[in-house]
Computed example of a mutant assay.
Amino acid sequence: MARAERLLELMQALRRRRAPVAGGALAEELGVSLRTLYRDIAALQAQGAAIEGEAGFGYVLQPGFTLPPLMFTLEEVEALALGARWVEGRADEGLARSAEDALAKIAAVLPPERAAALDWPMLLAGAARAGEAERMALPLVRKALANERKVRFGYADKDGRRTERVVWPVAVGFFDSVMMLAAWCETRTAFRHFRLDRMAGVEALPDRPPKPRRTLLRDWRRTQGLEG
């Protein structure tokens, strides 16, 4: 690949990592020699890139460093459009509008031949439309997640039995046919999963969970065997 393209690929490789990465791993990923990798690192540093590290230690792009705008590849445009179109069909009105606005902003900075990929897509997303109960519950749950608040709602299990729940929300999972809230349930004193289409009377409470959401997310991942 051309050197300019290789330097951008190197920056992207560093952006994907939070911990220092060995030069050998970067060189292998980019398909270049270690000597070339060291020269490219030095070139980026000379241009102002906040890359720290050295041979034998590893390299890391410092947090907070802002890259200049990079042009999207055609595949990146297709991936972004596919995801945004899926969100438009599956999520609530607020998220759907945000997805549409994001595509408009992307289209505004693309050259015409790549912007055309948004108007004449090769990949189509066939998301099932959210039901009314999901459309009503999702924005309330999202707001509670953003503000780190407890949530109260009535819940019907698969047999139709209704209970009142107060939960500490962790995250919402989007699946083919359902949306699922992962949360710590005060009634069950354990992590549980709740279908949004079975919720009623969703209300964000003024109380904060006793643990921050990041801690809850880490604990939930551990219980699901998603870490380590």
Score class of each variant (00 low, 15 high):
His193Ala: 08
Glu28Met: 01
Ala156Arg: 13
Ala46Met: 06
Arg3His: 07
Ser98Gly: 09
Cys185Asp: 15
Leu123Gly: 03
Gly53Ala: 06
Gly228Phe: 05
Phe175Pro: 01
Gly64Trp: 04
Arg18Asp: 09
Glu113Val: 08
Glu100Pro: 00
Leu34Ile: 07
Ala171Ser: 14
Glu76Met: 09
Glu203Ser: 04
Pro111Val: 13
Thr163Phe: 05
Asp92Gly: 02
Pro209His: 00
Ala79Ser: 13
Ser33His: 08
Arg3Phe: 01
Leu8Gly: 02
Glu52Cys: 03
Asp207Ala: 13
Gly48Tyr: 06
Pro68Trp: 06
Glu28Thr: 07
Leu216Gln: 01
Thr36Tyr: 00
Glu5Pro: 01
Leu138Trp: 06
Ala49His: 01
Glu54Thr: 11
Gly131His: 06
Gly83Gln: 08
Ala171Thr: 13
Arg135Lys: 14
Ala25Tyr: 01
Arg16Ser: 14
Arg35Pro: 02
Met136Lys: 13
Ala108Gly: 09
Gln62Glu: 10
Gln62Trp: 00
Arg85Gln: 10
Ala81Thr: 12
Val109Arg: 13
Arg85Glu: 14
Ala146Ser: 14
Pro139Asn: 06
Asp176Thr: 12
Met136Ile: 10
Thr163Tyr: 05
Thr189Cys: 12
Met11Glu: 09
Arg114Glu: 12
Asp219Gly: 01
Ala42Met: 03
Glu75His: 09
Ala137Phe: 05
Ala22Glu: 15
Leu110His: 07
Phe174Ala: 14
Phe194Cys: 04
Ala200Gly: 11
